[in-house]
């Protein structure tokens, strides 16, 4: 493998890496740090890259570890935000009536494959995650994108397991409502036969 070309490819991934890091970390400085550390680690590790995966996949794998490192370093700040988020009122109660039943039908989203191949769908999903309060966005991505166990998430974010489940619940409900409104109810979603 031509290491010079691979190094150029890594440099060309910077914008993508920053987008992913900002989405996860919600902080430009932390994201810049994670991306810089990723690029240094990737360039230094070029000799170990065996070319069995795509460069992009390999570098994003490194970025995930660097994001986790950032979480560990910033855990005190993240924990304080998490507690504030849990103390906030919850607009999600509007979804249910006084007896706890849903007041409106959710939309059937259909075949996942129909949207997974569309870049616009992921742009809308990312925008919905961006709209979440930062701790909810982080915890959702730790769980669903980085595929952490909830016990690891509790440890990283310094929250109790109950708080962790509550935050994941709120994140999922808000994202579900956001996608209903901004993708599936609009022009974006493919029509189901």
């Amino acid at each position: 493998m031509d290491q010079k070309n691979t190094a150029q490819e890594i440099a060309g991934l910077r914008t993508t890496l920053l987008r992913v890091a900002r989405l996860q970390l919600r902080n430009d400085t932390w994201a810049e740090d994670a991306v810089s550390e990723t690029m240094v680690a990737a360039i230094e590790g070029l000799a170990a890259f065996d070319g069995r995966s795509q460069v992009r996949t390999w570098v994003i794998g490194i970025l995930k570890h660097k994001i986790i490192d950032q979480f560990r370093r910033r855990s005190r700040e993240v924990s304080m935000e998490s507690q504030q988020e849990l103390a906030d009122g919850d607009a999600l109660e509007d979804l249910f009536d006084h007896s706890g039943h849903r007041v409106a039908a959710p939309l059937e989203w259909g075949d996942p494959e129909a949207n997974m191949s569309r870049g616009e769908f992921f742009a809308v999903l990312q925008a919905c995650i961006d709209q979440l309060p930062a701790p909810l966005g982080r915890i959702f991505l730790l769980r669903e994108w980085l595929e952490f166990d909830t016990s690891e998430i509790c440890k990283e974010m310094k929250v109790t397991s109950t708080n962790c489940f509550v935050m994941l619940y709120r994140a999922r409900l808000r994202l579900r409502e956001c996608l209903d409104l901004n993708w599936f109810a609009g022009e974006g979603a493919p029509h189901h036969g």
């Binding site: 993508t16 992913v20 989405l23 994003i60 849903r102 039908a105 959710p106 939309l107 059937e108 989203w109 996942p112 949207n115 997974m116 870049g119 769908f121 992921f122 999903l125 990312q126 995650i129 959702f140 991505l141 669903e144 994108w145 595929e147 999922r172 994202l175 579900r176 996608l179």
Partner: peptide, 22 residues
Amino acid sequence: DWCSIVARNFAYLSRAARHLDR
């Protein structure tokens, strides 16, 4: 039926999130 849809939506959301770095 509505909660059954939400169950499918959550599974969909989980699957989509794993592809966010596309």
